[in-house]
Design a protein around this nucleic acid. Sequence first.
RNA 1: GGGCGGUUAGCUCAGUUGGUUAGAGCGUCUGACUUACAUUCAGAAGGUCAAUGGUUCGAGUCCAUUACCGCCCACCA
Length: 889
Amino acid sequence: MNAPSSASTEIPTVYNPKQVEKKWYEFWMREGCFRASSSARKRPYTIVIPPPNITGILHMGHALNNTLQDILVRYKRMRGFETLWMPGTDHAGIATQNVVERSLKEEGLTRQALGRDKFLERVWKWREKYGNTIIRQLQRLGCSCDWERTRFTLDEKMSGAVREVFVRLYEKGLIYRGKRIINWCPRCQTALSDEEVTHKEVTGHLYTIKYAIEGSDEFVAIATTRPETMLGDTAVGCNPKDERYRRLRGKTALLPILNRRLVIIQDERIDPEFGTGALKITPAHDPVDYSLAEKHGLPFINILNSDGTLNEEAGPYQGLDRFEARRRILGELEDRRLLLETKEHVHAVGHCYRCHTVVEPVLSPQWFVRMKPLARPAIAAVKEGKVVFLPERWTKVYLDWMTNIRDWCISRQIWWGHRIPVWYCVGTESCTLKCKEPIVSRTTPEKCPHCGSAALRQDEDVLDTWFSSWLWPFSTLGWPEKNKDLRFFYPTSTLVTGYEIIFFWVARMIMAGFEFMGKEPFREVYIHGIVRDETGSKMSKSLGNVIDPLHVIEDYGADALRFGIVSITSEGQDVYVSKEKLEVGRNFANKIWNASRFVLMNLDEKRAFLKKAPRKASLNSVDRWVLSRLNRVIGWVTASLERCRFNEAASILYEFFWHEFCDWYLEWSKPNIRSKETQWVLHEVLGRSLKLLHPLMPFVTEEIWERLPHEEGVLMRSQWPKVKTGFIDKAVEEEIHLVMSEVQAIRNVRAAWQINPKDFVTVAVRVHRRKETQILQKHSTSIVHLAKVGSLQIGKNIRRPKESAVANIGRVETYVVLSGLIDIQMERQRIETALEDVGKMLKALDGRLKNEEFLKKAPKEVVEREQRRAEELQNRRKLLEENIQSLME
RNA sequence: GGGCGGUUAGCUCAGUUGGUUAGAGCGUCUGACUUACAUUCAGAAGGUCAAUGGUUCGAGUCCAUUACCGCCCACCA
């Protein structure tokens, strides 16, 4: 393939991501670099994207989630897997409907006024216009999804899968229609599943109300947090063991205001300790009351309209909003002196997860999925390790939820979604009893199978959005067809998601995977944290604390964003993002850019020599050092990515590339820059670093790769580097380490004594071991070059020069001549501080070495190492003391 | 009421299976436009690892208790 040519040989000194990112993304797309095929002769690696809502615009949470997936996918691709990242979007029933309704409202319209068909047309139009925004934004992030496969949860094929699943579960008896207490959102005007309700602790009130006892002057006091629900009371209850209420047995209470007669029941489940011990029973608006009512055969009175106003059962309060009704009722009770007490009360109140309105428990006929049978294999699979959570602690959260799973309310009273595939016969003449049964069908039935009537009415409701999402890992691959893609790419490999949707999505996918595919949907679930701002609040538009990833991409580049966000993400912890943290990414991208510029500028025109590795013997020890470090880094980064330790990989690369390769090797290479060996090493280290960095920072690496001589095609399709163990060389690492600390020692003295950076200094080094003498002499040109030394003497018999400061006491003594600048007292202070430190360490060490238990029980290597250290420290102490002496002479 | 996570440098956080003198980035301080990079370079200061107790030759790391912060789950009206 032909890579797009880079403009000129002139390379700007500041990396400009904008143009580069656009160019490469288009190139990758054009060349089909993201495509995956089930006919490939490779092992598959598959990730399905957590489909973002079509209403979504890219926020930091998406940026994190998708960067992590892209890293895995790019890494695996380079490792030689046939890698599929399956993209798509979610129709997001309630969320999308809300958005479109809001825009209708601006036109003075409502969906009811428009009618179902017209409204749906509008939503589809909206989706045509805005539904792919998030996809384009993901592309700007660099996501390497196989976009040609992009799915949408409401596509015809997806809908087919949904109907298939509904019918199968219905026929198996796992889907049923029933009248139960569900969570009702009066604003969205739909039922919600238990998971769609978030409980918030709020400080409300506990009101104690007097209920009169019929035919007496007595009354019973009852505590409630929702006084308006009294309008739906059909009984009063207390614990049978509660002596206080013995007198009420067999009597009847009177509901205040409405004067409804309420039987008084006894039940063990009523807690005599709470409130007054007497309970008002509102069977249609409380789950506990509901089950009490079923048990005791009480009537059910629903007092709410779908919008949260009160209905005709509320008598004088009909038409009022529930909270207004509460206020009025409290006023009325107060006027009638029936309100005994009002006190503050902290309790958990359910809110709609979409619009944050307080939800109402309401008795309502809905469709449910029986979950217990589905949960069984999903629990077993996780226990057996077929599906592994990372971090592992989520396993317990999952299992707890799974074992206490409740039936799933799947019907929604909205229009945007998968219409429930159920029809009812509305024929009148020849109908039999059987005609009352719902007709559940994959396709629209033409007539009632029992009476033959063509008058059929489809269930008005749609399915919960998650009823299509839970099929995602296989529906996207074509299920219920049995095709090659499914055989090849299913089960998928890793699922990457945040913990907030473990119940909504992850758990349900595992159940669906076993139920419909007979296999787990993925082998590994990587759960990352949630993105928060500096203050720790969840980033949200309403709080105005959003750092817009698109702005970051605009200002700093996608690579900067990716690197920045990854490097602050440690396993499963929440992520706090701030602009400053992303600057680290921008700076690093720029560093990579400039280091590469340096290498490219210096590579000779004739580059044939680059193809053949020089003989190891012809490489100097600095070359061998950097190659040794590089190969260690290859191993570390590979291991980190294998274990999904993204931040670890990022920091290993950052440290190596910046602080070893750039800070040291590049500086070192300058004097030898014309040598073929040096050039080969520069090319080698840069090239392999680009590969290692590519999953994290795909754009800048690809751009440089193109300019670097190579024979591998595009970087994203190149091979992941292997560790060349032959290059790992502990001895050479130690050798260079000594030279580096020598340079640092001299620089330290220079800085401490404020020597003008332009001045050369005279340095004398007294060495105590022959090996060290050899090393330092061998590298004396480097030391001179890197520490700006004029004259350097190294030897065993060196004496402290007059007016010199000492550094690096221990293995060697380094004297920097300060003629004139030296301040004896200050130098003495410096040495004494060092002496104190040594003293402290020695004391601790001595204690350990005198401890017989330690000598007996600690491993031999540890003891030996401590002994060696002690010797070194003693030696250092001796030298420091001598230095103070000689200073005083 | 259960469960989980966190508490390490001024700030934000790393710290793999317990073993040299606990690391990074930012910030601070000192210096430098050194021919790849000021989105830079060189150097420095800064920590009794929340508290207590225990296990161990040895604890930031393991165990227990406590405190504070955060999150999740739960039908006490």
